[in-house]
């Protein structure tokens, strides 16, 4: 609800506002074909992407936070403190942890190991800006933005030949297509299949159409203009599961890693271009 509060403020004088937007709505529906409306929404998104992406401000936040939390000792798979291109090869198997980890899970592990934080403290840091709008700048979002942007221009390259990674990929795929929760919903309900699925004028990407999973995940963290902050992949998972009425999503959980293994594995070959921007 908080997220809608900003807009609600601007429709103050509810009756008038309501009337006028009803009218506007009717006009849009009446005058434009769905194809025309979709084209115009794409034009809106293209205009949003011009200029400086406010999400880039988080890069500097992350640069400072990495020093503060001792993360220059963090090994993302290419050696301690080697971050260029490191995010592009995640998720991968980490012998020191004895498991497969994606970027965010690995950062959480490093925060425990190198910054002496407990798991609870890490999760609190991860969720600091969840549900907030306007001006919430979290160091965690900064760290993930910094580490991802250090891989900009690198192609996603998840090693699916590693049996441990492949196992998580398979579990992730199952979770993606699993119908659970009171609404019998899954990720695939919206984001799978050869047939096009739309919500209003937005054409939804599908994991089953070549290149589309890549386009979707390669721009995370994605700056969301309606909340004024960047959304990391785990925040995205949490929001999707909340909307699907699934049990509460726990960041850095095996479920998150499995989904990342499936999505980033499917996205192999796509260039990382963070941050993206969207509504």
């Amino acid at each position: 609800m908080k997220k809608k509060a900003v807009l609600a403020l601007f429709t103050a004088g509810a009756v008038t506002g309501g009337l006028l937007s009803t009218k506007a709505f009717a006009q849009v529906e009446g005058e434009l074909t769905p194809e025309q409306e979709m084209k115009l929404v794409q034009e809106f998104n293209r205009m949003l992407a011009e200029g400086i992406n406010p999400g880039e401000v988080w890069y500097e936040v992350g640069k400072d936070a990495i020093k503060k939390y001792n993360l220059d000792k963090c090994d993302l798979g290419l050696g301690p403190g080697v971050f260029k291109g490191a995010a592009a090869q995640l998720p991968r198997y980490f012998a020191d942890a004895g498991k497969v980890m994606d970027l965010e899970t690995r950062v959480g592990w490093c925060l425990q190991k190198h910054a002496g934080m407990t798991q609870d403290q890490v999760l609190k840091l991860v969720r600091q800006c969840w549900g907030k709008t306007g001006n919430c700048v979290s160091e965690y979002d900064g760290i993930i933005m910094y580490l991802t942007m250090e891989s900009n221009g690198h192609k996603i390259n998840v090693n699916l030949k590693d049996p441990q990674v492949k196992r998580m990929y398979d579990i992730g795929r199952q979770a993606y297509y699993a119908r659970i929760g009171p609404w019998d919903f899954n990720c695939a309900t919206c984001h799978a299949g050869k047939q096009e699925v739309r919500i209003r004028a937005t054409r939804l990407w599908s994991a089953d159409r070549p290149g589309e999973a890549g386009n979707a995940v390669s721009i995370f963290p994605k700056y969301l203009v309606r909340w004024g902050l960047p959304m990391t992949m785990h925040y995205r998972y949490a929001e999707c599961m909340r909307q699907m009425r699934w049990p509460e999503f726990i960041p850095h959980s095996d479920l998150a890693v499995a989904l990342s293994a499936y999505l980033y594995g499917t996205a192999n070959g796509t260039e990382i271009k963070a941050p993206g921007i969207g509504r």
Partner: peptide
């Protein structure tokens, strides 16, 4: 004056 014909979010209209 360049602006989108449709804005999917009133919070941020370029």
């Amino acid at each position: 004056l360049t602006a989108p014909t449709i804005a999917e979010s009133g919070a941020n209209v370029p």
